[in-house]
Structures are given as C-alpha cells and as structure tokens.
Design a protein around this nucleic acid. Sequence first.
DNA 1: CACGTCCTCAACCAACCGGTTGACAACAGC
DNA 2: GCTGTTGTCAACCGGTTGGTTGAGGACGTG
Lengths: 124, 124
Amino acid sequence: MAADPLSRVFAALADPTRRDMVARLAVADATVGQLAGPYDVSVQAVSKHLRVLEDAGLVTRSRDAQRRPVHLEAEVLDLMTAWIERYRRQAEERYRRLDDVLASMPDGDTDTTTDTPTERGNPS
Amino acid sequence: MAADPLSRVFAALADPTRRDMVARLAVADATVGQLAGPYDVSVQAVSKHLRVLEDAGLVTRSRDAQRRPVHLEAEVLDLMTAWIERYRRQAEERYRRLDDVLASMPDGDTDTTTDTPTERGNPS
DNA sequence: CACGTCCTCAACCAACCGGTTGACAACAGC
DNA sequence: GCTGTTGTCAACCGGTTGGTTGAGGACGTG
C-alpha cells in the first residue's frame, strides 16, 4: 500500500464510488448496508471501499450491535487542500510575475525573433 | 481509463513522483530530461507519468526541436478544491448544527445515561 | 437454543499501474 | 550524410485494485 498519507487520500478519492460515499457521509453517518443500497455491487465490495477510506483516515467505523456506523473525518481533507493550494498559488504567482516582466519591456529591446544563443545548452 | 475528469486528477496526484513533478513545474516549465534528472527511473517512466498528468489536464506539452517543454495547467486544481471544499464545509456545518442541538438542551430532559428506546431502530 | 441480520475475512480473477528494456522517430551539429 | 541527443512507442513483468463468491463471526429476537 502507498506509504505516505497524502497518496492514500488522493488514491482513496480517485474512485467515483468512494467519492459518492464521502459525499453521502458528509450529510449523515451511515451503516455499511445503508451505504451499499444505491450501488449495485455486493456488500463485501462496499466494505472494501470503506477499508480504503479508513486507511486514508477519511472515515472511522464504530460498533452498534451488528451495525458498523461509518463516520466521516473531514479534517483529513484539509491535508489535500493545503497541498493543492500551495502549488496552485505558486503557479499563479509565477504567471503574474511573467506578465509583469512582459509588461515592463514594451520597447523593441527584446529580440525574440532573432535567435538568442545564450541559455540553451544544458551542461552538468 | 477513468472516464470522469475528477477521478483522473485525483488518480494522477495519488503518486508521489507525479506530485513532485507538479511541485517543480509550479516553479518553472521543464523538459522531460530535466524532470527526469532527480529521480532514478528511466526517461520512459517519466514520459509515462507525464502522459498521466496530461490526460488529467494538469499539464500540456509543446515542441521545441527535440525538446518537449512541459507546462503546468494549474486551473484544473480548482476542480478538486471545489469538490473537497464542498463536502468539508457540509460536514463541518453538520457538526456545528449537532453542537447547537446539544447546547439547546442543557436540562436533565435528555437522559443519555438511562437507555432511550426511541430512535434506534432503522425501519425502511 | 435456533434463526435471521449485518458485516468481515479469504480466495480467486481480470484489469490496471509503475517500472523495465529495446527499437525508432525527430532534430542539431559535426 | 553520419552521429549524438531527446523523447515516444511497444512489449513485457510483478504487484495492486476492484470486483466476485463462499464461509463464518457477532449480535438481537423468536
């Protein structure tokens, strides 16, 4: 299994069935049987999906007689949001800076048409 | 291949190598060779990873002679953020509401110690 | 106690994934 | 026109994944 938590969370949500489960668990806790209802797969398959979500820390299972109520642990989602936002912001910032550079040289000083032999080779 | 875009993006970022590539591409565009440098895997493997990122819409590849500069398309990340935030918010709201209910009954009306036979069975 | 319900565990299977090697297309430069 | 560099395509391989069926554990109820 994937070692790092972030990979586990991303992988867990890469499956549409699992995403749908999370969506429904955001509304209310549910038992395995309740979760299995809408999908036409076996209860065992749903149980497996829950295991994946549990390993990713997205869900916890307790006991109530035979029932196993499933509860969404939404804080783990923040882990992902943090990662995503970091690089989205970084990329955004880079483009903004590039725009600034382009805006700051409106004259014909930059000859992009003729070739600039400097900066091309990639030694080392 | 996974049909829906969201699954593709999540699956693409479920791999630590691919996440690292995205992180580096957020700083600057890069060629396949440059990307492959740090990892001790073949260039072919990196090319495959890039294909996955490209299929997810996270990356575009252009041409410059033999080089294939890779460019990060950060907007796709918003797709994920939107999904995640939606359900994190929903779950958060639910817990907040539960807290309100608990807070609104500070008297001894709710006997959690003795058993409450109502609300337990789950018909239909 | 026997029985039905809810759920998990184990074994199996086809499909996919991440990696490899080998061949080769495209281009720059001698 | 060769040669080296850069990257992709194709075939293959072991491990994982998502699904199945079958067996059985735990619990409430007759």
